[in-house]
């Protein structure tokens, strides 16, 4: 069970990185691997997900509005089934995420995918976020009290 939960956490962490990457970046990194045989279990499909917020930020949920989402599923010849979901309408990206998700679950490829694809993309994402955070931080207000001129 713990192993199952571990793998689930690992898959989710990989998806959280892949969803932020461009299809081209994922494809370019996948070229570094000798990919096993695989096939589409579900061809990429575009649809909608209703995005929800919460009343007051932390209360009961409400429907805010929809977003476009693309999804796909891929099966490796060795049997692992991967799923790809991403905001937007890029079916190729959904398929690439599904392929990565299948590879993450494979004992032969799991480590290589993490090393060659997920880790560098995560690094890239962190650099982007850090830069944005630094630019934001420069707009933080420093209040100071005016010193009264005396004497």
């Amino acid at each position: 069970m713990t192993q199952h939960n571990n793998q689930q956490a690992q898959r989710k962490a990989a998806m959280a990185v892949l969803a932020h990457a461009e299809a081209g970046e994922i494809a370019a990194r996948l070229r570094a691997l000798a990919l096993p045989a695989h096939q589409d279990l579900r061809a990429p499909e575009n649809g909608l997900v209703m995005l929800r917020g919460r009343v007051g930020g932390d209360g009961a949920p409400f429907n805010l509005g929809e977003a476009t989402v693309s999804r796909a599923a891929v099966r490796l010849a060795s049997g692992e089934v991967g799923f790809g979901y991403t905001l937007g309408r890029d079916g190729d990206k959904a398929r690439l995420i599904a392929l990565c998700d299948a590879l993450v679950q494979s004992s032969d490829f799991g480590a290589a995918v993490e090393r060659e694809i997920i880790a560098p993309l995560r690094e890239q994402l962190m650099v982007r976020r850090k830069q944005a955070a630094a630019e934001t931080a420069a707009t933080k207000v420093d209040f100071y009290t005016m010193v009264r001129g005396e004497g």
């Binding site: 909608l48 997900v49 209703m50 929800r52 989402v69």
Partner: peptide, 23 residues
């Protein structure tokens, strides 16, 4: 356009408290 696409479902409610704040 939105009326032309199927709906997969609804998201988990987003957490505005965990927002990466830009303002």
């Amino acid at each position: 356009f939105r009326a032309t696409l199927p709906r997969f479902g609804a998201s988990e409610p987003v957490d505005s408290g965990a927002m990466r704040v830009q303002r």
